[in-house]
Write a protein that binds this DNA or RNA. Sequence first.
DNA 1: CTAACGATTTAATAATTGTTTAACAATGGA
DNA 2: TCCATTGTTAAACAATTATTAAATCGTTAG
Lengths: 107, 107
Amino acid sequence: MMKSAQVVKALAALAQPTRLTVYRLLVTAGPEGMAAGQIAEKVKASPATMSFHFKTLSHAGLVESRQEGRFVYYAANFTVMNGMVNYLTENCCGGNAEACKTPGKKC
Amino acid sequence: MMKSAQVVKALAALAQPTRLTVYRLLVTAGPEGMAAGQIAEKVKASPATMSFHFKTLSHAGLVESRQEGRFVYYAANFTVMNGMVNYLTENCCGGNAEACKTPGKKC
DNA sequence: CTAACGATTTAATAATTGTTTAACAATGGA
DNA sequence: TCCATTGTTAAACAATTATTAAATCGTTAG
């Protein structure tokens, strides 16, 4: 089970428009990821701002990076996000799915 | 489809230790929810602080409230969280599940 | 080696967020 | 009605966060 502090960190990392866009971009890109500059261009942010955001996402464990020549590639890591979702939905309705009267929710 | 701004708001609402605890408490409590004071006692926060956090969660659409006598009951609303999760995982690996090499991830 | 390119770091600033205290509603029992 | 109970609101302050500009680090082509 993921620790509360790590979940908070992951949620905070995604709770920012630029980072949320970046993360979704990387989710779509798949395991190969994208180069930092390529992402920066897509989201229209300066290199320094991007580095700041990448650091936040990395520190939260949501993305991983690898150097390839002069480029740094970033790729999404789904493990933390899955852990986050599981943490949030744990013991829904006291573990009793039938008690869950919220329409559209599959406990 | 949920809008980016709303997803950011929901993520930000959950990206705080006290609010995350409160939300999980309400997820476990189910549709009946819990009284504000009962929650405050559980998470050891002052009434004013709780009101501030409830407002943040409500404004994000993550919880709903109803008055019952002198008590205000709060209950989790799963629709926004489901929308949030769908927004995050949309188009994983370019929509090609076989391209998803991340272990443990079910695209 | 030198210069250009891609990205990160640092320091400074502006904006946002969380907590506290005190004052203010609203409800219901005596 | 009076008063205790339950929560919310408002103002002030400390702490955190996002952005910018300038300097720096690594890599590779010439």
